[in-house]
Computed example of a mutant assay.
Amino acid sequence: MALSTVRFCCVLLSLFTGLASGLEITSTGPTSIEKASGQSVKLDCHFTLAPEDSGPLDIEWSLVSSDSQSEDKVVILYSGDRVYEDYYPPMKGRVHFNSADPKNGDASINLIGLKSSDSGTYNCKVKKAPGIRSRKLHLIVMVKPSKPRCYTEGPTVEGKDIVLRCTADEGTKPMQYSWERTSDSKLLPASAVLDPMGGTINVRNASASTSGTYRCVASNRVGTEECFLNLNVTPPPNTAGRIAGAVIGVLLFLILLAIILFCFCRARHRKKYEKEICNEIREDVPPPKSRVSTARSFTVGSQRSSLGSMSPSNLHEYALKPQYDKIPSSEDYDRPPSHAPLPPPSAAKMAVPNLSRMGAIPVMIPAQNRDGSIV
């Protein structure tokens, strides 16, 4: 019984030894590869066959899913002496077998135009019944830094803290930044504090000597990019002069405003006064004074002398003259000139002899003006 058991174990061992000496993956290169985006990579997978491997040859490359619940994505397949390359749409046209006839022992593939999404674990599985072997390769597609942007934060004034910042929007981590000064002594200021991971330089209590040209280099394991910054530290502004100028400007504005308001009020007051004067009815103005006695004595004497020397013919002409010696009443002054009373028509036509027959005596009545003075 014990002898039979030993013989059975020897038979099983020989069978396993035969299987182990069949299909084998012979590639021994690195299993982790780093490449930059846009480059090409060869995923190596060589194999050997044994005489007992008599089944059909199948070669399958798949992208292992990071989620254990999801299925692996077949990238390229060789089966039945035929190549199938369009299994994975994101890599369509970018993945090919390295050999035109993979059954000769070269199952390697080439990936061109690498993208960051191509990163992952790839599994090369070779099957030829009864042998099955596989090999896994880890591909890391790195993106080199994009063109960084250099700028300053804070006022570039003497005595202030200035921050020089360098940032690249794209690039595979980890990424490092280095600063250097390209002008003058090419040394960073003594008060500068460099952060290589954040890409910043903090310059404390900046002075005029801090001015110059600076260069920032962003780098990772697949590439570098750089940018330049011109820093000009200016003297502090004259704050006292600005305040004095602002105060003077405000005072001048207030003075000008006060002058404008004063002129406006004065003009308004004058206009109001003139309007009141025009609307006022002045009835208490006294009449102008005249020399009554001298004019009256002169007029009476002259009238008497003229009456004494008048003849009937002169008297007739005197009667025909308009009567200017009539004293006008207040109604005559109030009446418009167009309504002034006309002299009676009979007085001009009446003859002096008729007046004499009627017993009238011609008398010269002295005329008076508006204020009662004799003319």
Rank of each mutant, 00 (worst) to 15 (best):
S4Y: 09
L12Q: 09
G18P: 00
G29K: 08
S32C: 00
E34D: 14
K35L: 05
K42S: 09
S54D: 10
P56T: 10
L57Q: 03
L57P: 01
D58N: 15
E60Y: 08
L63M: 11
S68H: 10
S70A: 15
D72R: 02
D72N: 12
K73Q: 14
V74A: 13
Y78H: 09
D81Q: 07
P102Y: 03
N104M: 13
N104D: 14
D106Q: 07
I109D: 05
I109V: 14
N110F: 01
G113R: 14
S116I: 15
Y122P: 00
C124V: 05
C124F: 04
R133H: 10
R135P: 00
K136Q: 12
H138M: 07
I140Q: 10
K147T: 13
C150R: 02
C150K: 03
G154F: 10
G159C: 04
G159P: 10
K160H: 07
R165N: 02
C166R: 02
D169C: 03
T172W: 00
R181E: 03
L188A: 03
M197R: 14
T200A: 05
I201R: 04
V203A: 01
A206D: 03
A208Q: 09
S209H: 12
G212Q: 04
Y214E: 04
R215T: 04
C216A: 04
V222E: 08
C227H: 05
R242L: 07
R242N: 11
I243F: 13
G249L: 12
L251Y: 10
L252N: 05
L261P: 01
A267P: 01
C278N: 11
R291P: 06
V292Y: 12
V292C: 06
S297E: 15
G301F: 05
S302K: 07
S302Q: 13
S309N: 13
N314E: 15
L315T: 06
A319D: 01
P322E: 09
Q323I: 06
Q323N: 08
Y324A: 05
P328F: 13
S330N: 12
A351W: 06
P353F: 11
N354M: 14
L355M: 13
G359R: 08
V363Q: 13
V363D: 06
M364C: 10
A367R: 13
Q368Y: 07
V375M: 14
